[in-house]
Structures are given as structure tokens and as C-alpha cells.
Simulated scan of single mutants.
Amino acid sequence: MKKVNTAIVIPAFNEQASICRVLNSLIELDGFDIIVVDDGSTDDTAILVSAFPQVILLSLAVNIGAWKAMQTGIRYCHLNNYERLITFDADGQHQVASIKLLCDHQNETLADVVIGSCTGRGSLSRHIAWTLFRGLSGIKVNDLTSGLRLYTRPAISILSTREASLLEYQDVGVLLMLKTFGLKLSEKAVNMNSREDGISRIFYSWGAVAYYMAHTSLLCISKVRKSSELSYQLAMKRHLK
């Protein structure tokens, strides 16, 4: 595997039932920094993570939601000059073996974003949503809601902007934003485990699905504008030099 400065970012909210198993499976990997963003958990998630000295723990004072917690980790990676990061779930669905698959695929394709695709999972509502959003957005990605993704430095820079904070999910909106900047998206087929604990934050009820589909449909048909903050970031870097 090509040695690149890479982080694994795990947002976690009340994941005490699974977080230790997830971290124990990851700490044996060589060449990756592991970052857990505790999203204001009210259980023992942060305490359990702090028992792993090799894991970087970012604790949020209040719960701000899965995407904004993820963006906290992305911004940390942007500020600390990571070349790429992998987003990984805390609930045990993602498999450690998938990390090498994503990294190898990115090395081969030089894609800016690699999505770990597992289209065999999920309910009927999930597959209906995928079909609708592919048609509305024009994004040729099979698994639009996969939380297992690899982002390279250009994607990290874009997703650390204030405009990206306006998004609500790490799914179609993120991919639309990256597509607007001309980044190359790719998919790699992976296997996923069944959820060990809890429920999907999007597909747990038809009401939640209806809200998600209305929200994301509007996002798909709206004009996505390029962020002006990237030029600001570059100007600040030149100033600091």
C-alpha cells in the first residue's frame, strides 16, 4: 500500500455498545491515525475512547449531528495537513478490510473520492431514494448514502468550508458539492456488516424517509455554487508563509 498521510475519522454519538470493538479492529492497522469525534454523547462513549492512547479524541460540548461531527474531523485533518482521510462508522457496519480496498483503488484510479459501495444492503425505501436521487442529481454513483468514503486533499479542503456546514447528511449534497468543483468520484464494492446497535438516522421510519427525500430532492434541483472560501484559505496560507 502506498504510504500516504491518512486518517480514519469516526463520528460517534452514544456508541458505547460498539465503539471499543470498532477501535480494537482498527488500532492494528499500520500507517493510519484514528480520530474519533464524540458528538456530545450522554453515555460512556468518550470515556471508553479515552482509554485508547493511540486514538485522537475530539469531544464536542453538545450534539451537533452526524454530518457536522464528521466535518469537525474533516477540518481537523485539513488543519493538520492530512493527504487523505477515510470516514468510518462507529456502529460496527464497516469492515476493516475495506480500508485497504479503498486505498488501493484510489492509488490505481487517482480518484479524488472513493465510495465504499454495498448496494445489496438496505430497505426498499433506501433503494427508492437512491434511484430518485441518481436521476435528479446526475451523479452516477450506485451507493449514494454510504458512510464509508475516502477523501483526498482537494475534497478535504472543499468539505472543510463554511458552505459545507449547511449540508445535513454525508450523502448526495456532499457529492454534489464535490462534483461542482470537478472532482473525480469513484466506487469500490465492499462488504458491510449488519448494524450492531441502534437504527439508521435516515431510514428508520417512512416519516423520516419522506423528510429526507424532500430535503435532498430540493438540494438536487437547486444550483450548487462554488465556495469562495477556498480562495480565502489559499490567501491565508500565502500570508502565513
Rank of each mutant, 00 (worst) to 15 (best):
R149M: 08
P11N: 15
I99P: 02
G198I: 01
A61T: 05
S227I: 02
L178F: 14
K68H: 12
K241R: 15
L148C: 11
A7P: 03
E28Q: 12
G207K: 14
I35V: 14
L124W: 15
N80F: 12
I8L: 12
I199W: 12
T6W: 01
E28P: 04
I199T: 11
H127P: 03
T180R: 12
V113C: 11
S186V: 07
L110V: 13
I115Q: 01
D171E: 10
G122Q: 09
T161K: 03
A111C: 03
A66C: 05
I128T: 09
R153T: 06
G65P: 13
L79C: 12
S125M: 09
T145P: 01
T119P: 14
I34F: 00
G65T: 07
T145I: 07
N5H: 12
D171P: 11
S227C: 07
L178Y: 07
G73W: 02
S50I: 09
L102N: 08
E196M: 03
Q95S: 04
I47A: 10
P53C: 15
V22R: 00
C118L: 03
E108G: 10
L110R: 15
K179R: 03
V9I: 15
T45D: 06
E229G: 10
S137R: 05
R75M: 13
A164M: 01
G122C: 04
S146G: 05
Q106H: 07
E168F: 08
L79N: 07
W130P: 06
I64N: 13
D104R: 11
H78Q: 13
T109E: 08
N81S: 08
F133V: 12
L219R: 07
V4L: 15
L79D: 08
A51Y: 15
A90P: 00
L23G: 12
Q95M: 06
R21D: 15
I115H: 00
N81F: 13
R238G: 03
V96G: 02
C220F: 01
M213L: 14
K179H: 13
V224I: 08
A7I: 02
Y232E: 01
C103I: 05
H127S: 05
A69V: 11
A66Y: 11
D91W: 03
L185T: 06
D143C: 07
Y232M: 06
R225K: 13
R149T: 08
W130H: 15
S186L: 03
N63I: 03
G173C: 08
T6A: 13
L185S: 09
N5G: 14
D104F: 03
E108N: 14
A155F: 00
H239Q: 03
A164K: 11
S50F: 15
K68N: 06
G147F: 05
W130T: 10
A208S: 12
G173Y: 02
S227T: 09
T87F: 13
V49C: 01
K188T: 05
A7N: 00
D89S: 00
L183S: 06
V4E: 10
R149K: 09
I158M: 02
F13T: 00
G182L: 00
T45S: 12
C77D: 02
M192K: 15
G31H: 04
I35E: 10
F203T: 04
E28I: 10
D171M: 04
S98W: 00
G135K: 11
